[in-house]
């Protein structure tokens, strides 16, 4: 197995062009586990850990640019105001050691349906910036996930960054696991309220072959809020609205039975999480 360790982004893109079979390596929290379990034997590893420009994040007016090497630790600490949904999700990932190593770009690269960063990025309407030696392109995140652990990256491309609008309203993330820390999602749900456009964003994790968006639930919620002019009045949302929202989120899921939980439980838990998350987010909005 070859080990490639470029020092600059252009060197990394050149290396990926020359060795499209190279497995990109960021924090290693997925890749090294797969190597250990002998599930994967790439011909080469492309270590992106020495490329300074991938780490960290920046803000230009209301547009955030999250480097692919942004760790969960930094996301959880620094994005609490600008992207609270992702910050909450980052806080639920693994242990402190894993959060120090694991990156948002790595999460997208692995494209696991259970990746914790995916639902809040879906709810926030992110785009993924993919780059190759020939140039770069932006892919809306809901078009990025193609299947379990499959994404829209071409063999010569690397994930450069995630571009996401700064939050204009409350965001929530909630994840069910059978232990109270260090657990992979049995299912998860993210919600973003966008009062500026009077829109509602959703993201569902670990309840389908890819991370999902609950379109019908979004439409229903937007309609219910508009109908009663709640964005302006900031009056309370009916419990029945929250419950129906939960049902529609659950209906958008395509869960399976597996070692972590049953399909029926996943659907049930999503309906509970979504109803609760809407209640919490709306309470935040009313206070704001």
């Amino acid at each position: 197995m070859d080990f490639l360790q470029p020092r600059s982004w252009s060197d990394a893109l050149a290396a990926k062009t020359n060795r499209p079979d190279a497995q990109p390596l960021a924090g290693g929290t997925d890749v090294l586990v797969d190597l250990n379990f002998d599930r994967h034997r790439p011909a080469a590893l492309l270590d992106l850990g020495r490329i300074g420009e991938l780490a960290g994040w920046s803000r230009d007016d209301d547009a955030l640019r999250l480097g692919a090497g942004l760790t969960y630790t930094i996301a959880a600490a620094e994005l609490v105001d600008d992207l609270p949904g992702l910050a909450m999700a980052a806080r639920t990932v693994g242990s402190p050691q894993i959060r120090n190593r694991g990156t948002i770009g790595g999460n997208l690269g692995s494209a696991s349906p259970a990746g914790d960063a995916h639902p809040p990025l879906l709810a926030a309407g992110a785009e993924v910036e993919l780059a190759s030696a020939a140039g770069s392109r932006r892919v809306p995140i809901r078009e990025f996930f193609l299947g379990p652990k499959r994404n829209a990256l071409a063999p010569d491309e690397l994930i450069a960054a995630v571009l996401v609008p700064r939050a204009t309203g409350p965001q929530q993330f909630a994840k069910v696991g059978t232990r109270n820390a260090m657990v992979i999602a049995v299912c998860s749900f993210a919600l973003a309220l966008h009062p500026d456009h009077q829109r509602v964003g959703t993201g569902i994790g670990s309840a389908g072959p890819v991370p999902l968006v609950a379109d019908d639930a979004e439409c229903f919620c937007e309609g219910a809020l508009a109908e009663s002019d709640l964005w302006s009045t900031r009056a309370a949302i009916e419990e029945s609205t929250r419950r129906r929202f939960g049902e529609l989120v659950a209906a958008a899921a395509r869960p399976i039975d597996d070692v972590r939980g049953s399909a029926a439980y996943r659907s049930h838990a999503l309906s509970v999480l979504a109803a609760r998350a809407l209640g919490w987010a709306w309470a935040d909005y009313r206070r704001s």
Binding site: R91, K175, V176, A181, V183, R276
Partner: peptide, 16 residues
Amino acid sequence: LRELPGGVSNTTHGEG
């Protein structure tokens, strides 16, 4: 949150 079922996974603020 760490004192509640689900911990920082933020599944309840006391509901249920």
